[in-house]
């Protein structure tokens, strides 16, 4: 039996908002450890992996590992009907009926909404994602997640030439990270320097560079990842020319959301 409760719907609402526009289906793995979610976009260029440890829930009971594929668009729709302070209950029964029940209960007026989701197939996930050693990455950038979101918005507004495939080039050189994109009639570069942590200890931009690195990505994907900012104050971007880039948001003490993206290669 699986029975989970969260006294505030916000966390789950934010998770769904952070993944549902780019990923249509996800695999949810429930175990004694917690919930592990994985999804891949249809072109297999981006992957999201989420961990919410059992401690993230107010009540967590999972006496047998359970893996289910769910449609994220439908879930996002249901969660948009939930208020931030609704109590969520997630239940799946022993009889393997291939459905999971999400219940939203308003603590104020006692109204209860019940959604049953059928399991769907998730082709290609879950994958075994190893933690590559730090030395495999040429550069790491940590910055406030709100700043990263602002950068993505600026680049999108400039790079929006009606072409869905606007490319952003991220390059790290010494103590600077540059975001570069091309618009219809010009280019745009946003330069972020490492900030002194003394002035604003809570919002540092930190750059660790082993080698200069410059990689091209789809801006559309990066823009979508930046929605992870509702889950964490900081984002860490790990860059390597040999591995997928990782955009990681730590969720308090209880887990993380990691987006993996492959750079574009010129043919």
């Amino acid at each position: 039996i699986l029975e989970l409760r969260l006294v505030q719907a916000t966390l789950f609402k934010n998770v769904l908002e952070a993944i549902s526009d780019l990923f249509s289906k996800a695999n949810f793995d429930f175990s004694g450890t917690g919930l592990e979610l994985q999804a891949m976009d249809t072109s297999h260029v981006a992957l999201v992996a989420l961990l919410l440890r059992a401690e993230a829930f107010n009540h967590y009971l999972c006496d047998r590992d359970l893996s289910m594929g769910l449609n994220l668009a439908d879930m996002a729709k249901a969660f948009r009907c939930a208020n931030n302070d609704d109590i969520i209950t997630i239940k799946a029964e022993e009889d393997w009926s291939d459905t999971v029940t999400f219940t939203f209960e308003s603590p104020e007026d006692g109204e209860i909404s019940i959604f049953d989701f059928d399991f769907v197939g998730t082709n290609g996930v879950p994958l075994e994602i190893p933690e590559f050693p730090e030395s495999e990455y040429q550069a790491k950038v940590r910055m406030p997640s709100a700043k990263f979101m602002r950068i993505c918005k600026k680049l999108s507004s400039f790079g929006d030439s009606g072409d869905r495939d606007t490319v952003v080039i991220i390059s790290v050189d010494k103590e600077c990270v540059n975001f570069f994109t091309r618009g219809k009639t010009g280019t745009s570069t946003i330069v972020c320097r490492q900030t002194q942590t003394v002035d604003k200890p809570k919002e540092p931009t930190l750059i660790e560079m082993k080698e200069q690195v410059s990689l091209a990505f789809d801006l559309r994907y990066m823009n979508s990842f930046s929605k992870g900012s509702t889950l964490s104050d900081q984002v860490t971007i790990s860059l390597s020319s040999n591995l997928p880039a990782v955009f990681e948001y730590k969720i308090a003490e209880t887990g993380y959301i990691r987006y993996y993206m492959l750079p574009r290669i010129e043919e």
Partner: peptide, 14 residues
């Protein structure tokens, strides 16, 4: 240019 590689090239199936 196009991305030629897919995620599966880096990560294995469970």
């Amino acid at each position: 240019g196009k991305t030629q590689l897919r995620m599966e090239a880096f990560y294995s199936f469970n």
